[in-house]
Design a protein around this nucleic acid. Sequence first.
RNA 1: GGCCCCGUCGUCUAGCCUGGUCUAGGACACCACCCUUUCACGGUGGGGACAUGGGUUCGAAUCCCAUCGGGGUCACCA
Length: 578
Amino acid sequence: MSSTEVVTRFAPSPTGHLHIGGARSALFCWAYAKRMGGRFMLRIEDTDAARSSDESARGIMEDLAWLGIEWDDGPRLDLPGGRVIGAHARDIEGGYFQARRVNIYNREIERLVQSGHAYPAFEGSEELDAQRKAATAAKQTYRYPRPADITPGVFNADRWDRAQRGEAHVVRFVAPHEEILVADRVLGDVRIAPGELDDFVLRKADGFPTYHFAVVCDDELMGVTHVLRAQEHLANTPRHVALQRALGFRTPEYGHMPLIFNLDKSKMSKRDKAKAARAALKSALQKDPSLSPVTLAAGMGADSSQVAAFIAGENDSLDIAARAGAYLGITLPEIEVADFRANGYVPSAITNYLALLGWNPGVKTPDGKDLEKFDMPYLAAHFSLERIGKTNSVFDRVKLASFNQDALAAMSDAEFAQGWLAWMRTYRPQEAARLAGDGSPARMERFTLLAGAVKARAKTYADALRPAGFALCDDDGYTFDPAAVKKNLHADDGKGLSLLRALRPALATLEDWSPGPIHAAIEAFAGAHALPNIGGIAQPLRVALAGVAVSPPLGETLTILGKDSTLARIDRCLASAG
RNA sequence: GGCCCCGUCGUCUAGCCUGGUCUAGGACACCACCCUUUCACGGUGGGGACAUGGGUUCGAAUCCCAUCGGGGUCACCA
C-alpha cells in the first residue's frame, strides 16, 4: 500500500439487516475508493456483545454482495457459485471484527492512562442516570464532572491500582479544553467551542471499547484515509479528533452525508414495518366486526396473545408484522435491503437510485436533461465528494419503483425471464413451479413468452405476478368479475356473449397456435362480423379467459394458455354467463 | 433546552463557490391529448419552487445579516 492510497471503510454493527441508509453509505465509500484508485474496507463493529450476532454480520455481507458493493479489505465471504469477496484482503493484526481486537484497544487504553489522558472511573450507571435526570429536570446540560483527583497529563496511579485489583470501572478520556475544528469535505469547517466535550467513556465495564474509541484506533491502525458516514455522526467527530491528538494519530479526512427520511420526514426505521402492519390490523378489525385478534392470529399462524399485544403496541415484532402483511395482502414498507430484494427490486435500480440520494453527477445528457441513469462502473469513474449535497433527503419509493421498472424494461425478454424466475424460485416457489415447472425447454419457451408479455407492465418482479394472474390459476379457478361480465358480455342484448360463442369454433379449428396467427384470426373474425375494431370481441374474450377485461395482448395470452385451456375457459364462461 | 448542520416545484435535484445568459432546467408523481383490442409501454403538452424580512449592488436563487422552519446530537448503542 502506498502512503497516498485512499482507504475508505463501511463499518456496520451487526445487530440486524443492512438498512437502506447504510447501503447508501457503503455505496458512497465504495465509489470514492474506486474513483481514487484506492481500497474499500468492510469492518464489523460488534462491540455491543448483547446485540451483535454472526448471522447478522453474514446477512449484511450478503446484502452488500448482492448490491454489487464488494470490499477489497474485510472478512472473507464465500458465496454460492464460487464467488469470493475479500480473498485478497490485507492481513491486519486482529482482523476485521472489533470484538476480536480487544487486546489492541486495551494496549492503547493503557498508553492513554499512563500518559494521563484517560482514567478509570468507578461510578455506577444508575448513579449517573440519576445525575443526568436531575440535570435535565433543572434544565441544565449534563456533562460528566471530572473528578477532583484528575489532572490532565498526569498518571493517576491510585485509580489504576484500584482498577487492576478488579474493581468495577469504566475508563474515561481526559477531554481537552480547547476549540476543535473539523474540516469536513462535505459541510465545510465545523467548530466546537472549548468545554463542549466531557470526559466520555472509552472502555465499558464489560471490557469492550466504546464506539468512539474502537473507531479511532481502527481507522488509524487500518490506514483509513477518508471517513464518509451519515451526518448523525457529525456531533461525534470532535471527540474522535480529540482522541486522535491524545493518541498521536493522524486525523483522516471526514465527509458527512445527508440523512435519509420517510415521506412524512420521520427517520426510516424497521419499526415502520410494525407501524404499517398494526395500522392494517386495526383497520381490518374495524371494517369487519366479526374479526378478533384471536381469529386474526389463527389466520396468520401466530400466537393470539402476542398478536393482541402487537396490536396494542406493546411490541414491534418483525415476525408478526411480516405475517400480518402476508395475511392481509399488504406490502409492508421496505426499509432494509433484504426487503427490497424480497419484493423484487433489482440491484442496479437500487444502487442507481441510492446514488442520486445526496449525490448528483451534475452532467447533462445530449438532449439537455440531467443525467440520472447510470451504472456502478459510471459511479466508480465519476463519484466525487464535492458533489455530495448538504440537505437531508426523503426516500421516495415511487421514484425507486420507476427506476426499477425502467431497469426491467431494459432487459431482453430472456434476461427478464431468467431474473424473474430466479427471484420466484426463492420468494414465490409455488408460482415458480406453476409457471416454469421443471424448467424444460418447452416450459421455458412458454415462460419466456409470458415474461415478455408481462415485462413492460411490472415495476418489480413481485408486481409482474399481477398481469400474469391469468396463467397462475386453474381453468376453473378464477371468478368472473360481475361488472366486467355485465359490460362486455351482457350489455347490448348479450352481444358480447353471442360473439364469443361464434368465435369458439374459429379458434377450435385454428391450426397454428402462436401469437401472430391467433391475432390474425381474431382480426379476421372482427372483420367478418362487421366490428369497427377488434375490441368488440377482444374484451369478451378477455373476460372469458381471465375473469376481467384486462390481460396482455391476446395473441400472447392465448398462446401462453394453450389451445385446450383457452377453449375450456371459453366453455366455462359461456356456461356460467349464458 | 445546550451545541451543531441544513432550507430551490409534492419528492429527488441542476443552477449558488466564480452575481446578469433564470420569464429558474431535469427526473419521479399528477393532469390532458396522441398511439392503442384492454391494461401497460411510448410520444406531445400542462400546472407546480428560489422559506420570510432586511441589506450590498446598476442587477441576487446566487454575497451578508436577522427571523422563521426542518434535522442531528447530547449513553458504559453504534
